[in-house]
Nucleic acid binder design. Sequence first.
DNA 1: TAGATTGTTAATCGATTAACAATC
DNA 2: TAGATTGTTAATCGATTAACAATC
Lengths: 208, 208
Amino acid sequence: MKKMISQATIDRLPLYFRTLRVVEDEEMEIISSDELGRRLDITPEQIRKDLATFGQFGRKGIGYDVHELKERISNILGLQNKWRLAIVGVGHLGGALANYVNFASLGFSVVALFDKNKNIVGSEVNGIKINALTQMKRVIDSAAVDIGVITVPASEAQGVADKLVAAGVKGIWNFAPIKLFVPPEIPLVNEDLSVGLSALSYHMSSRE
Amino acid sequence: MKKMISQATIDRLPLYFRTLRVVEDEEMEIISSDELGRRLDITPEQIRKDLATFGQFGRKGIGYDVHELKERISNILGLQNKWRLAIVGVGHLGGALANYVNFASLGFSVVALFDKNKNIVGSEVNGIKINALTQMKRVIDSAAVDIGVITVPASEAQGVADKLVAAGVKGIWNFAPIKLFVPPEIPLVNEDLSVGLSALSYHMSSRE
DNA sequence: TAGATTGTTAATCGATTAACAATC
DNA sequence: TAGATTGTTAATCGATTAACAATC
């Protein structure tokens, strides 16, 4: 069995990547784990440990080549894949995500939209047509969708997840506040806004 | 010094809370850690350990009273506080959050909006007026805002955070993809969508 | 009583931090 | 050479899991 890489490490890689982009824009060519850590409030030891999981990227006594490290992290994260997204549920949140520009800069693109509301099926958001849920398999196939984004109410989310899996998506990004059960070979990431907001509430309450 | 409660535990409490609500709707009166764990794919031992951090909530041989446990978790999370939010940056995401109904069911309400774009200042979203950034201190004061929500571009986020802190917010919920520095007494929760999406990309890539 | 289930202590596992040799 | 900085091993810390006495 391949050595497992911790989720904590994986979640820090995008932070390194994002910071390296900024640093590259500032025309720095070399960066130390110390400077990178300072910008992210992460210890340099942690950064070196994270990177060491994937190989040797730096030069002793010098630091890391900004451009090279950025590219390497991009490849570790699989961002060269230019993933194609379909959003299911074109409400306020789904609509906002369909317009979200930051995705594009990471190489993701929204290529299909779905909604069960017949009144909006056929119309467009950000130039992308809204399809009926009944068309899911066909559209996901023809648009070569990789990732299904779930922005429907919690009560409908499991049903949508099942349909997305049946339609052949390779991963699911779930915004519905509910635990979804999907086959183990389908990666699932939850973006549960109520968790973060509740945690904020907790911290604010416990320091009064 | 008070014993620190782990962030992992705090992040699971909203999941318990949410599930207890569903279970209460199903008119179950008693639930075991086993059943709760089954619904969330969390081990019963983990759940009991989490709850034990805050006291004794169940009855041996019986289980937990659904309504009572739900109320107790709500109080631990500070959800009885009915926090008031201000959203800074009324773009697609900020606008979606201003309309987001799930907040209300947790007792949060959006009471103020801010944007630097003069063309939209003065108009309303979901019945809430958009103010200029220059009005921040006055409006946050008069609307008794507790939490500042940052949905501006990364390049403007630190400046907005500084203004929010100066205006007296008690906590910050940040959606901008950048590390913010705020005084230690101000709780800060980051909702960085690019982290989750990148993690999804990583997992999808590494199983091909 | 027997079965179910909590609360808590002990054991294990995994992640972070510290230390330092290697080397630019 | 002296100073800087990585990569890696060892030590520490913290979180999860296992085990089980208490008790309904």
